[in-house]
Simulated assay, not measured.
Amino acid sequence: MNVPVTGNIKEKILSESEKLLWKYGVRTITMDDIARRLGISKKTIYQHFTDKEDIVYHVVSHHLTNEICEVDKILEIAENPVEEMILVSDMMRQHADAVNPSLLVDIQRYYPKAWAAFLEHKENRIIKDIMASLQRGVEQGLYRADIDLETMARLRVELIQLGFDDRVFPHAKDIMALQDQLLHHFVRGILTDAGFVAYNQSIDKLKKSTI
Score class of each variant (00 low, 15 high):
1 M>D: 08
1 M>P: 12
2 N>P: 09
2 N>M: 13
3 V>D: 14
5 V>H: 05
5 V>D: 10
6 T>K: 01
6 T>E: 14
8 N>P: 07
9 I>N: 01
10 K>P: 04
11 E>T: 04
13 I>S: 14
17 S>M: 04
18 E>P: 00
20 L>D: 02
20 L>Q: 00
21 L>M: 00
23 K>G: 09
23 K>M: 10
24 Y>L: 13
24 Y>Q: 14
33 D>K: 09
36 R>G: 11
36 R>P: 07
37 R>C: 15
38 L>Y: 13
40 I>Q: 03
42 K>F: 08
42 K>Q: 15
49 F>P: 06
50 T>I: 15
52 K>Y: 12
53 E>W: 07
55 I>V: 13
57 Y>S: 13
60 V>W: 01
61 S>W: 04
61 S>M: 00
63 H>Y: 11
65 T>I: 13
65 T>R: 13
66 N>A: 15
68 I>S: 03
70 E>P: 05
71 V>K: 09
73 K>Q: 11
73 K>N: 12
73 K>S: 08
75 L>Q: 13
75 L>D: 09
78 A>M: 11
82 V>Y: 02
82 V>M: 02
84 E>K: 10
85 M>P: 01
87 L>A: 09
89 S>W: 09
92 M>A: 07
97 D>M: 05
98 A>F: 05
102 S>G: 10
103 L>V: 09
103 L>S: 04
104 L>H: 11
105 V>S: 14
105 V>I: 09
107 I>V: 06
108 Q>R: 10
110 Y>A: 01
111 Y>Q: 04
111 Y>F: 15
112 P>T: 12
114 A>K: 05
114 A>E: 10
114 A>N: 04
116 A>S: 12
116 A>E: 14
116 A>G: 04
117 A>M: 04
117 A>F: 04
118 F>W: 04
120 E>Y: 11
123 E>T: 06
127 I>H: 00
128 K>W: 08
131 M>K: 09
132 A>H: 03
133 S>F: 06
137 G>P: 01
141 G>Y: 05
142 L>F: 00
143 Y>M: 10
144 R>H: 08
145 A>K: 11
145 A>F: 12
146 D>P: 08
149 L>A: 02
151 T>I: 14
151 T>G: 10
153 A>M: 14
155 L>A: 14
155 L>R: 10
157 V>D: 08
158 E>R: 08
159 L>D: 03
159 L>C: 07
161 Q>E: 15
162 L>D: 05
162 L>Q: 03
169 F>M: 00
170 P>S: 06
174 D>A: 07
174 D>G: 00
174 D>M: 01
177 A>R: 03
177 A>V: 06
178 L>N: 00
181 Q>V: 12
183 L>C: 10
185 H>I: 11
186 F>A: 09
187 V>W: 00
192 T>M: 01
194 A>N: 15
194 A>L: 12
198 A>C: 02
198 A>G: 02
199 Y>L: 02
199 Y>H: 14
202 S>C: 06
202 S>D: 02
203 I>A: 07
205 K>V: 03
209 S>T: 01
